[in-house]
C-alpha cells in the first residue's frame, strides 16, 4: 500500500527515510505541534514549496530542460484564484474555478512556449522562458486595474478557511478556519507530490529520463521527443500553478513580489540543487531546509550575534542583516560537498 502510494520509489537510504518521515509527521501535525502563527505560516510555505520545487524537478532533474518561467506559472495559479475570488465573490466555487482556470492557462501557455521552442536547442527554450516570464511580470504590473499592479490584490476567501470560523477543540487546539485552511494546503500538496512521484515512475517518466540521457537515441528508438518534452512542460506548469493557487488561498493576498519575482525562481533553483536533482525526494529536503533557513536563520543569527557581542568581528558577521551571505555560503558549501544534492549523497552512502 505505502509502496503503491510512493509508486515503488523507495527512499533507498535509512537516513533519508527517517528525515522524510520526520518532515511528514511535523507537517501533518504542525497545528498541534507548533501552534504559533509564525510557525504555521512556515509549515504551509514548506508544503507549497515542496510541490513547486518537485514540479520544477520534473523538468530540470528528469527531463533536462532548463526553464526560467516556473514562478510565472506559480503566479498564474495565484492570480487565477485571486481574480476568481475578487470578481465572483468569496465562495468555494469561485475559488475552485480560479484554481482550475489558472492551471489551464498555465498549461496552455506552456504548450505554446513548448511547441514554439522545444524543437530547437535547449538553450533557446531557456531564453524564451526568461523573455516570456519578464514580459508577464511587466504586464501584471502595468494592468493594475485588473491585477492591482505592484500593490497586488487583497481578497476574501470562503469564511470556513478564515480564523474567524470556529469549529471547537481537539486535543487542546482550537480548530479554526485557519487550521482547516492549513489542512487544505497540506493534503492537496501531499496529493500533488504523490502524483508527481507517480509520473516520474511511470513509463512516461522513463522516457523523460531517456531524453535527458540521450535525446538523439530516444528519437532513434521511436520516441517523439518534442511531444514528451512538451507534455512534461505542460504538466510541470499546471502543477506549479496549483501550488500558486494554494499559496494565494493561504495568504489571502497576491502580489508580484510573493508570486512572480525572479528571486523566487532563484530560490526554486537552489532548493532543487540542494535537495538533489532528479530524485523528487530532493524537493522535500531542499524546500524544508531552505524555507526553515529563510525564516529562522535571521533569528538564529541574532542570538549568535548577542552571544558573541564581546568578541571582535564575530558580532558583525552574525548580524541578522547578513543572513543572505550565510545562505549563499550554505549553498556554495552544499554544492561543493554534495554535488548530487543531499538525497544523492545519502543514497550513495558515506
Amino acid at each position: 500500500m505505502t509502496m503503491h502510494l510512493l509508486s515503488g520509489d523507495r527512499p533507498r537510504s535509512v537516513v533519508l527515510t527517517v528525515l522524510l518521515l520526520a518532515i511528514l509527521a511535523a507537517l501533518a501535525l504542525a497545528p498541534f505541534l507548533f501552534p504559533g502563527v509564525r510557525s504555521l505560516e512556515t509549515a504551509a510555505r514548506i508544503c507549497i514549496f515542496i510541490v513547486l520545487v518537485a514540479s520544477y524537478d520534473l523538468l530540470l532533474g528528469y527531463t533536462g530542460i532548463v526553464s526560467f518561467a516556473h514562478t510565472m506559472f506559480f503566479g498564474i495559479g495565484a492570480y487565477g484564484v485571486a481574480l476568481g475570488l475578487t470578481h465572483m465573490g468569496s465562495t468555494p466555487g469561485a475559488m475552485l474555478a480560479g484554481t482550475l482556470l489558472g492551471a489551464l492557462a498555465a498549461a496552455v501557455l506552456a504548450l505554446a512556449i513548448g511547441l514554439f521552442s522545444l524543437r530547437v536547442r535547449a538553450i533557446f527554450f531557456a531564453m524564451i522562458t526568461l523573455a516570456v516570464a519578464s514580459a508577464v511580470a511587466v504586464l501584471v504590473s502595468q494592468f493594475s486595474a485588473l491585477t492591482g499592479g505592484e500593490d497586488g490584490l487583497n481578497y476574501k476567501i470562503p469564511r470556513a478557511l478564515t480564523p474567524a470560523f470556529r469549529l471547537g477543540e481537539v486535543a487542546g487546539l482550537k480548530i479554526t478556519g485557519k487550521v482547516l485552511n492549513y489542512y487544505l494546503v497540506f493534503f492537496v500538496s501531499l496529493a500533488l507530490f504523490l502524483l508527481l512521484l507517480r509520473v516520474v515512475n511511470s513509463p512516461f517518466g522513463r522516457v523523460l529520463e531517456a531524453i535527458r540521457e540521450n535525446e538523439f537515441r530516444a528519437e532513434a528508438i521511436g520516441y517523439k521527443v518534442v511531444w514528451y518534452r512538451t507534455i512534461a512542460t505542460c504538466l510541470s506548469a499546471a502543477v506549479a500553478a496549483l501550488a500558486g493557487s494554494l499559496f494565494a488561498i493561504w495568504l489571502r493576498y497576491v502580489g508580484p513580489d510573493t508570486t512572480l519575482s525572479f528571486e523566487i525562481m532563484l530560490d526554486i533553483l537552489l532548493m532543487v540543487v540542494i535537495g538533489g536533482m532528479g530524485t523528487m525526494y530532493g524537493a522535500v529536503i531542499g524546500a524544508t531546509i531552505f524555507v526553515l533557513a529563510q525564516n529562522y536563520l535571521q533569528a538564529l543569527m541574532g542570538v549568535a550575534a548577542d552571544a558573541t557581542a564581546s568578541l571582535p568581528l564575530l558580532p558583525q558577521l552574525f548580524d541578522p542583516d547578513r543572513w543572505l551571505l550565510w545562505l549563499g555560503l550554505l549553498f556554495v558549501l552544499s554544492v561543493y560537498f554534495f554535488p548530487t544534492g543531499i538525497v544523492g549523497r545519502l543514497r550513495a552512502g558515506r
Binding site: 503503491h4 509508486s7 515503488g8 507517480r198 509520473v199 515512475n201 511511470s202 513509463p203 512516461f204 517518466g205 522513463r206 522516457v207 531517456a210 530516444a218 528508438i221 521511436g222 520516441y223 514528451y228 507534455i231 504538466l235
Partner: peptide, 18 residues
C-alpha cells in the same frame, strides 16, 4: 525503453513502470 517504444506505452503517465 526500446520495447516500451515498440508497444506504445510511453504516453502512460499514471501507471507504474515497474
Amino acid at each position: 525503453l526500446v520495447i516500451q517504444a515498440q508497444r506504445h506505452t510511453g504516453f502512460s503517465l499514471l501507471s507504474m513502470a515497474a
